[in-house]
């Protein structure tokens, strides 16, 4: 944890939340994609939806972005009703969709100019903002290049820059860094921190634990259209995992036997295909005890609990599954 950022909403109690959902539900035909979500996102907060593919994250984002009507439940965005005030709400939010919607044949700058026109900003204002945003996205040198040949990270940064052209109060980012290399991801995170420090409310979906831990004040762990848990990363770890984890590798055929040998040693044991996870508040003590019981692991590692462990606990599988 960074410990520097404030956790939770920074609004005074009682202030109108940026997003408020009660029983928010989305069906596609008979298929239930989002099943009765309750959540509230405060001004200046950065809120994450963490979950595997198909959990319903994008469906939820599209409802918040007023691009997809809720099937039932209530939703308020910026204090307004998406069903009747969609255009007004969309005028004040920025969306980074899961799939880029850039015009690949046009230049970087033209993409910003066009998008600004959708918001009815005067050309002069767009041009001024575009200059700043290109700098922010480290794309100034590419301003007059076509989008097509840009790298994935550059396109993503352009999409983020574009979503900021209207200076939104609320920025929705659907898997902003999926498919990017680590360097590109870190650059993006840095840009998102900056936005956050400027007071922009962020709503982020991801299936990367480190991203969620890095960027989000509060998280909802989503699985099968529902919330499995919600809270700050620290709260989630405290509530759903132990302080430390002992990871032991035995090799595939000795895994089960070892699990039997170590039974009852930790508060909880997870048997993964490639390793055993022993959840305990004292990993070193657990390792000593494992050795005493005659376990001979190929490798042993004591680490602090992470969101990955929370996720495993809540859903019974790792995110990579």
């Amino acid at each position: 944890m960074t410990g520097v950022r404030p956790a939770g909403p920074v609004d005074p109690p009682g202030a109108e939340p940026m997003v408020l959902a009660r029983g928010l539900t989305k069906r596609f035909g008979d298929f239930l994609a989002v099943d009765g979500l309750d959540f509230s996102i405060g001004r200046g907060e950065s809120y994450g939806f963490l979950g595997p593919n198909g959990a319903g994250k994008t469906s939820t984002m599209r409802m918040i972005a007023c691009m997809s009507p809720a099937t039932s439940g209530t939703l308020r965005v910026l204090g307004m009703d998406p069903a009747t005030e969609g255009p007004a709400i969309r005028g004040r939010i920025g969306l980074v969709p899961q799939e880029d919607t850039l015009d690949l044949e046009l230049t970087v700058l033209d993409n910003l100019m066009i998008y600004g026109r959708y918001f009815d900003l005067p050309r002069k204002v767009i041009r001024e903002r575009a200059e700043r945003l290109l700098d922010f996205a480290q794309l100034t040198e590419r301003a007059h290049d076509k989008v097509e040949p840009l790298s994935g990270g550059m396109k993503r940064r352009l999409t983020i820059a574009r979503s900021l052209i209207s200076e939104p109060d609320l920025l929705i980012l659907d898997e902003p860094t999926t498919g990017l290399d680590p360097q590109a991801r870190h650059l993006l995170w840095d840009r998102l921190y900056r936005l956050k420090s400027e007071g922009v409310t962020l709503v982020i979906t991801t299936h990367y634990m480190d991203e969620a831990e890095q960027l989000c004040d509060r998280l909802a762990v989503m699985d099968h259209a529902r919330f499995a848990a919600e809270g700050t990363p620290r709260e989630l770890i405290d509530r759903w995992s132990t302080r430390e984890v002992l990871e032991l590798r035995f090799g595939p055929d000795r895994q089960e036997a070892a699990a039997g040998l170590l039974e009852g040693l930790a508060e909880r044991t997870e048997v993964l295909p490639d390793r055993l996870l022993l959840y305990t508040n004292d990993g070193d003590a657990a390792l000593t005890e494992a050795h005493r019981r005659g376990a001979v692991p190929v490798s042993a590692l004591v680490r602090r609990s992470s969101l990955e462990d929370v996720f495993l606990r809540l859903t019974g599988r790792t995110l990579a599954d």
């Binding site: 972005a65 691009m67 255009p87 007004a88 969309r90 005028g91 969306l95 969709p97 919607t101 850039l102 015009d103 998008y115 959708y118 918001f119 009815d120 979503s163 209207s166």
Partner: peptide, 8 residues
């Protein structure tokens, strides 16, 4: 879809 994310 880019247009529909704006007030249009």
């Amino acid at each position: 879809f880019a247009m529909l994310a704006s007030p249009l």
